[in-house]
């Protein structure tokens, strides 16, 4: 057991070294895709907290990404707020939106929850289009200020933004890992496995569900803010159904409920969709097919498949079996 956790740490360090070295290639295109991958990996990991750890199928998740991005954008453009503070407040705004969706949805499960969150996503999308005196409607908002640098670091350069996103990504993934492997995380899994049984052991399921909605949507909002100050342009498509489906595909492709899985999914999908750029119009079709195939043939996602076929064959570590089962 000790051996395998040492191995895991070795893998993680190796991965971080690779990530750190990538910008040295100087390939701006790769760096750009990597930055977007980090942002999407953060977003997908946040969604996984709901999909994987509480078993809630959320279809309109991109709404929170958009709320974070627009909040930060509008605050920094209209009242000149520091984009750093804007990103944090974007997280808060997204969290409030999460409460607005989460509280009424507390009693809903399965497809009903999915439909109601889909509705929420559509509402945010329509608001972004129709409140054009604030959001400029479908035109979107250009010329968003970049994150101001500190000292010698200037975040308008792609390479420094890359390292910033890498750092944020590692911090958030670490927090999520701590959270899900804590007592709190076990309680979430218990709720997912059986809500009635969870109540019967004294879990205030509503409270826990709301708390996890808040954490998840805060992170989603923050990732939206980082996106806005990187691309420096936002439009309502950030909250579109296809964006939501894309995030969900990342979670399912990588492996829901595994912390690291959604990141794998995010990196694969970001690079694949770059390769398949000519087929952009068929994005939803591809994602939809992908989701069906994954659920049918690889319910544990890529990560689950890897663990099952590579790691388990070597060492039947009970801990890992437990993890993959989730």
């Amino acid at each position: 057991m000790r051996m395998s956790s040492l191995n895991n740490i070795a893998y993680i360090i190796l991965l971080i070294i690779i990530f750190v070295l990538i910008p040295l290639s100087g390939n701006q295109y790769i760096i750009h895709i990597m930055i977007l991958s980090f942002i999407n990996a953060i977003l997908a990991s946040a969604l996984d907290l709901l999909v994987g750890y509480t078993g809630s199928l959320i279809l309109g998740y991109a709404a929170f990404y958009a709320v974070g991005a627009y909040t930060s954008t509008l605050l920094s453009i209209n009242i000149g707020l520091s984009p750093w503070l804007g990103v944090a407040l974007g997280g808060v705004a997204s969290m409030l939106a999460g409460l607005a969706m989460g509280i009424p949805a507390l009693r809903l499960r399965g497809p009903y929850l999915a439909i109601s969150t889909l509705g929420f996503g559509v509402i945010v999308y329509l608001l972004l289009i129709n409140l054009d005196f604030i959001t400029r409607g479908p035109l979107g908002i250009p010329n968003i200020p970049p994150l101001p640098g500190a000292g010698l670091i200037d975040f308008s350069s792609r390479t420094s933004y890359y390292y910033l996103m890498l750092t944020v990504y590692i911090i958030i993934l670490y927090i999520l890992w701590m959270l899900t492997s804590s007592r709190y995380g076990r309680i979430l899994v218990a709720m997912r496995e059986d809500e009635d049984a969870a109540k019967a052991v004294g879990i205030n399921t509503s409270l826990y569900r709301i708390s996890v909605y808040m954490i998840s949507t805060f992170i989603a909002g923050v990732s939206g803010g980082f996106y806005a100050h990187y691309i420096r342009y936002v439009n309502p498509d950030m909250s579109s159904l296809s964006q939501s489906i894309a995030i969900l595909s990342m979670v399912l492709l990588g492996g829901a409920g595994t912390v690291i899985g959604p990141s794998i999914g995010a990196f694969i999908l970001m690079f694949v969709s770059e390769i398949l750029r000519p087929l952009l119009e068929y994005r939803l079709l591809i994602y939809g097919t992908l989701i069906i195939l994954i659920i049918r043939f690889f319910p544990g996602g890529v990560y689950g498949y890897l663990i099952k076929n590579l790691v388990q064959r070597k060492t039947v570590s009970k801990e890992i079996v437990g993890e993959v089962k989730t």
């Binding site: 218990a190 496995e193 059986d194 009635d196 049984a197 969870a198 052991v201 004294g202 437990g322 989730t326």
Partner: peptide, 28 residues
């Protein structure tokens, strides 16, 4: 209470099933 139709936390192992209940008794 217990349930007529058993409701263990299926995806968790036996020890963790008990652990979750203990977390709740001792407080998170």
């Amino acid at each position: 209470r217990t349930f007529q139709l058993v409701k263990p936390f299926m995806g968790m192992n036996v020890l963790d099933n008990i652990r979750v209940a203990l977390y709740m008794r001792h407080g998170l």
